[in-house]
Design a protein around this nucleic acid. Sequence first.
DNA 1: GCGCATCCTGAACGGCAATTCAGCGTACCG
DNA 2: CGGTACGCTGAATTGCCGTTCAGGATGCGC
Lengths: 209, 209
Amino acid sequence: MAVSPRPSLTESRRQDILAAASAAIAERGLCETRIADIADNIGASPALILYYFPSKAVLLTEALIYQDRLFAESVKEALEGATTAVEKFSILIEASCPRPSRSGGATDGWTLWPAAWEMSRHDPTLASARARLDEAWRAQIADIVDEGIASGEFRPLNSTDFAIQLAAMLDGLAIEVMLGDPTVDADRMRGLANAFLDLALKTPVSGTT
Amino acid sequence: MAVSPRPSLTESRRQDILAAASAAIAERGLCETRIADIADNIGASPALILYYFPSKAVLLTEALIYQDRLFAESVKEALEGATTAVEKFSILIEASCPRPSRSGGATDGWTLWPAAWEMSRHDPTLASARARLDEAWRAQIADIVDEGIASGEFRPLNSTDFAIQLAAMLDGLAIEVMLGDPTVDADRMRGLANAFLDLALKTPVSGTT
DNA sequence: GCGCATCCTGAACGGCAATTCAGCGTACCG
DNA sequence: CGGTACGCTGAATTGCCGTTCAGGATGCGC
């Protein structure tokens, strides 16, 4: 459940702060997030934040990395119940759909991705963490595809290429959903993602000409 | 060439500033961009910026909208020479590939998209402009598909759904390329996008079972 | 040459927000 | 019971940066 191997006493406080920072970024936006906002989210003083983190900058990058990891772990956990490849894909797609902005509960991880991308451009630490997790995400997709091919659920294809395509499409769709694009809501996103799955994985290879 | 119908004398100065602001955001990042940076880019004083724009905030949103429009126009222009649907798609894909960071020349529009997404979350003006331009972008894709279907280049399919899928995939791929993901460079992006086109547009409909 | 509008600037101003610091409570240890 | 370490805070402090303003230059019509 916890991200790090053994959260020490102060480690749990650090995670509270990381969560509070994530929430603040989701709510106010990356640029408008002040240390005071983060402190408010856990009912503490601004000085406390700087007691656990050396500066606002590193806190923000750590918060974005933290959320990325949480997302990766929650998906991995959700996949454990599934058996067939088709089932697993439906879980992946569901996880990729931005929720209609839960107020109160855990931060909707999706909201933070544009912030993470924007920040990655100048923050090597965040950039490499993000790249690593993204690679893992694609590998997960590729594994499911290979599994489905082995079980005969899917036709043979290059699973690595497909993984990049699907991951990209999900990112792009999620952006639209998250921004409230009137023509792409979560249902539409699910439908289009599934249509791509059907097309790419189930279409039999057509003979030449 | 100009974005607005009739650029007045001061309008051209405004555009200089919008371009300078875009460059600054691309270079320093959305949060780290100061008015002084924008002023430096055109060799002027910070006060000049506020002479043409009421505040930093509106300048930034206008700059992001400006760049979006520039991108849309440049694509529309590039498409004029093309005749076949296949040709047009190759232009669209090429336009979607982030360039290897031109230094000096026009800002690589791609760099600004995460900033635009992040800002759209809280800026209704930017959000609606972005949604409108995105809709136009997808409509352009759909038109080309319909054209290709009519000419027999493509098999019949729902062009609107396809447009959303392709636009999303291009967005997602471009993010990876822009962030320098080691496994997705511009060439790979082109290849995967074209593979999706082939799969979706040229695969003959397979009979039931 | 004169007046005026436009464009632009240097030099304040003011406020905000990150960071620092000195110290208070408290729990634990002996 | 002291003493010590830790967790935490309120109140400075500090520097930055958006914004304002009072004017200088420049060009143009008369």
